Amino acid sequence: MPGMGRAQTSIPLYEVVPNAIPRQDIVEKWDTTATGRVLVRYVQQPSITAYLPPPENANGTAVLICPGGGYSYLVMNQEGSEVAAAFVKAGVAAFVLKYRLPNAKIMNDISIGPLQDAQRALQLIRERAGEWHINPNRVGVAGFSAGGHLAATLSTHFNRPQIENPSRTSLRPDFSILVYPVISFGDSLSHKGSRRALLGSDTANQAAVRLYTNELQVSKDTPPAFLLHSSDDRVVPVGNSIAYYQHLMQEGVKAAMHIYTSGGHGYGLRNKSNKDDWFQRCLNWMEANKWL
């Protein structure tokens, strides 16, 4: 594929996966839907796939990409590899995260499994930054839908490490890109499927609900954010992005938000309801903030 840079490499996140219950009878499953979405389920060996621009084009910035799928599957092409290709074309190293999905059969605490993998991926990118020609102070995260919830969790829970971190590597992304993200687990805004998957039930205790209602976890140290949503999103209400933006503003954190009139949910790079190129808007925002 043009602009993909060097050959992609899949890198396991761990030698021994934390919080895991090994199950040989549960096998990772990949499917392609009739609409061309490539889905993966039952991840037990989380990894990142590195998409690296040629060294002469690299600008030192990297993005960890978290595909969505309601914490039930991962959309690995439209919200993963295709986004990575677009970043590589702009000289940005991209890493697509294949993270574990909450499943009590394969992990002891389902609520921390995805966050563990995101934190470990960010840690790994920073610790191998020299090898990949990356500035460790310019590593961001991008997330789509439930992957946006994971990206927002990574952005607001970085002082709550869920992995071993002997080198005290920063687990805070330098910026976040949140595309039609699940943000809130509150009743009025929640994507109930994501909440049910991550917390295990519709009646999870209120402390857990609040902990993962990420607009309530925003602080002055939350990284700057680029938010994208559509007003007619019937899967994840646009109020999720608005709530996060408002809390960022209250804390004095820089943010940009773009809300389309239409487009629905799950469109990846291409909102077919209009001719606007949201990804170019994102790159413009990154350049204005000196990440490009």
Rank of each mutant, 00 (worst) to 15 (best):
Y245E: 13
N271C: 12
R128S: 12
Y212Q: 08
G147Y: 10
Q123P: 04
D109I: 01
V38A: 09
I65N: 08
G266M: 02
S184W: 06
T49E: 10
S219P: 00
Q8Y: 04
T153I: 07
N274D: 10
V96K: 07
V182W: 00
D277K: 08
V63P: 06
W30R: 14
S155E: 10
N205V: 14
Q24I: 06
A94G: 11
W30S: 13
S47G: 01
W285A: 06
Y245W: 14
Q162E: 07
V40T: 13
I26P: 04
V63D: 03
L211S: 14
Y244H: 12
N289I: 00
P166V: 05
Q206H: 13
Q116E: 02
R126T: 02
L227Y: 07
L97I: 03
N135I: 12
K192H: 01
K192P: 00
E15F: 02
Q116K: 00
I110T: 15
K105A: 15
A118H: 04
L228Y: 08
S47K: 12
I177W: 04
K275R: 14
A94Y: 07
G3S: 14
Y73V: 10
S231D: 12
S72D: 09
S145V: 04
A129D: 03
A151W: 08
K105R: 15
A58R: 08
Q246W: 11
L199Q: 06
A7D: 12
S231I: 00
Q250V: 15
Y73K: 11
E28P: 03
A50M: 05
L283G: 05
N103T: 07
Y51N: 13
S219G: 13
L292E: 01
D276S: 13
A85M: 09
P173Q: 06
R196T: 15
N240P: 01
L292G: 07
A93H: 03
A288T: 11
T9K: 15
E28Y: 12
V16Y: 00
I242A: 05
A256M: 05
F158N: 08
I11V: 11
S188K: 15
S170Y: 05
P22R: 09
V139K: 09
H149N: 10
L199T: 06
G268W: 10
D25I: 08
G70H: 01
Q119A: 01
V209F: 09
N108G: 13
L178T: 09
I106M: 14
L97A: 07
L189K: 09
A146T: 01
V236P: 01
T153C: 07
R172H: 10
L115R: 00
G186A: 13
R41E: 07
S201C: 09
R138E: 00
G91L: 10
K29G: 05
R195D: 01
N271W: 09
D202N: 02
P55Y: 10
